Structure formats: C-alpha cells, structure tokens
Amino acid sequence: MSLVKSLISSDKYGVKCPYKMTPKGICIHNTANDAPAKNEVSYMKSNNNEVSYHIAIDDLEAIQVIPFDRNAWHAGDGGSGQGNRNYIAVEICYSESGGDRFIKAEKRAAKEVAALLKQYGWTINNVKKHQDFSNKYCPHRTLDMGWQRFLNMIQTELNVLNGSYTQTPSSNQYQNIKVGSKVRVVGFNYATGESIPSWVKSNTYTVQQVNGDKCLLKEIVSWVYIRDLQIVSSGNTAPSTPTQPQSKRYAENGTFYFDTAVTVRTAPEENAKTNVVYYPGEHVIYHHVIVNKNGFNWIEYARNNGTTGYLKVKDLSTGESYGYAK
C-alpha cells in the first residue's frame, strides 16, 4: 500500500477521533468538491469541528490522517453507530465535476482499499458506502457511475494482490495476442478506466495495435488491457494494414451523464446542429449507441418534440469522453 501518513496532532483526538476502535471494514465517501487530497487534509487538521476521516485520495496520492485504531466521525449514524465507531473512512476527491481526475482518483482508491482488505483479511463484503449508514446519497459520483462497478474494480485489484486474478492470461496467451487476433472483452474497464458497457462484451473484435500490455480494438477504437481479453482466434503474425473501422449501431437502453457541454444534433453528423445543449451535470436517457460515425461515438434518444436526437459521447481521434453511461 502506498499511503502517505500525515496524522493529526494528538491534542485533536478528543474532537476528531476520541475512541479506540478495532476496524470492521471500510466506508467510501466522495468529497463533493474538486480540492486535491492535500487540501482536504490541511483543512481537516486546521479546524476544530468533529467531521473527520482516515484517508483522503486523489489522482496522485493517498494520505492517511487518522490512525486506523481510532474512530472518525464520517458516517452520520451517531455517537455509537457502526459506521462512526467501526469503519475506516475513505474520501475520494475531485467528485464535484467528475471527469478524468475523478476516474483516476477512483482507480487509486480501488488499489488502496484492496490493500486494506488484504491487510485485514477482509473480503469485498467489508466495503460499505456512506449511504449504508445514513440516508445521505454518498458517495454521490461513485453511485451515479455505478456502485457495483466500483466494487468490481476493488475486487480485481484484490485478486491481483492475492495472485488469483482469473482474467490474467498465461504467457502463451500473451504471445498469441497480436495484430489481427480476434478477441472478446471479458474485463470491467477500458485502459482509460471507463466502464465497459454490456453490449461491448457480446461481440468479437480485431486487434489493430499492440502496445505493451494494451491492445487497440479496431471496431470500437478503444484501448483494452490484454489481461481483459479472451482469444477467439490468434490471427496473423504479420502486421496488418490499419483500415478505417466501420460504423455500427447497437440497441442499448441507458442513462448518459455529461461532463461537458454537448449539442443535440438531428443526425450523427457535425453539421446537423440544433439549438439544444446538454450541460455538465445533466443527463439523457438513450436507446441506441452508434460506434465510429464520422470520427465519434454517439447516442441516440427520443426528444420531447417527438423527433430523434443524437449526441456525441466520445471523440475517437483524441479518446476524450464527454461523460459516462450508467
């Protein structure tokens, strides 16, 4: 585990962490702002209110503020509540706006939580959300993106630590995956950290590039770790000439949450603009996905005026996503 210790002074124990505890698990929070972990820690150490936590995590570091054998006031379930008195509190930063920094902070949090599970001999069942102990919708951004998705991330990291990661291919399989190989996706996340939609896992893809431990899948123009791929056929050893992936349209019902402003279009084309814009924090319910149409991935939805609307969700030339689906 790569925790940096920056513990509060013992003269604040009476306010911040007055009771000894033997931890029973881990409680996940989102900070609801865009401050880095070091700012969160500095603020908590400087004030005299009761609100406290054990670890703050952002995309660069994880900082421990309170010893694990002392309680923190974080769960909202009272002075003798299970959360406040028995759980290690983890705050994930950059959750107000979300986006790439939050995705990276979540990935780091998954690693740190998995390390704690291994340290204490716990399982994924020892990981709780703030909402489990109170009525507060927290960790809000993680819940919006999918709580089970986050638990899957932790379980994958725990499996790696325990040497039992079932999706890790053998050395022979690594050697067999090359340009031209036909593969299926069996993991939970793209190499960028974004969740892999269910429709992706029902299709076979062609490996267009291999770079270290990652492959670029031609049909969806996305990078996936080799460990998260299953070989259907090995393909040719000689590099193939890259070709432009064909556009595909899939039926999928879901909700897309925007991290940036996206204009509604009357067709999956740049020049088919309307005057309607979805802004960060807003969402839309969609019914189809269009992959690689004019250099973008799109979602298709029913507009209130009875027409069909199209929204860009990913720029395939840069890899930038404009939000996330749930």
Rank of each mutant, 00 (worst) to 15 (best):
Y257P: 02
S222V: 03
D58A: 01
T206L: 08
A62Y: 06
Y278L: 13
K248T: 14
L217V: 02
P268K: 10
V262Y: 04
Q155C: 10
K128L: 04
D259K: 07
Y137T: 10
R249T: 12
M153T: 09
S222L: 05
Q208M: 11
K104C: 11
Y205I: 02
E269S: 14
I285V: 15
N236F: 13
S222T: 11
V224C: 04
Q209V: 07
N84T: 04
K178F: 09
K45W: 00
Q131E: 15
G121S: 08
Y19P: 00
K38A: 11
K118T: 05
K24V: 04
S6W: 02
K104R: 15
F150L: 05
S195Y: 12
S6C: 07
S222P: 00
I55V: 13
N305G: 02
Q208A: 12
H54Q: 04
H74S: 13
N33T: 06
P139F: 00
Q119K: 15
Y279S: 13
L143M: 12
V277Y: 05
I66V: 13
V221W: 08
A110H: 01
S97E: 11
K312F: 07
P23T: 05
G83Q: 01
P67R: 09
T166D: 15
Q209R: 08
G76I: 04
Y53C: 03
T166G: 12
I92Y: 01
I231L: 12
N304E: 14
A114V: 06
T274M: 12
Y174P: 07
Y120W: 10
A267C: 05
N86F: 02
G163H: 07
W122P: 01
N292A: 14
V51I: 12
F133H: 00
V291K: 04
T204E: 13
K16I: 02
P268S: 14
E269L: 14
E61V: 09
S134P: 03
T241V: 10
V179E: 11
N253T: 13
G163P: 06
I231T: 04
I290S: 00
K248M: 11
K312W: 10
S6G: 03
I226C: 04
D132Q: 08
S6A: 09
D11M: 05
N152P: 00
G212K: 06
Y19C: 05
V113S: 04
N297I: 06
N84K: 06
K5D: 07
A272N: 14
A62T: 06
G14C: 08
Q155P: 07
G78K: 09
K218H: 11
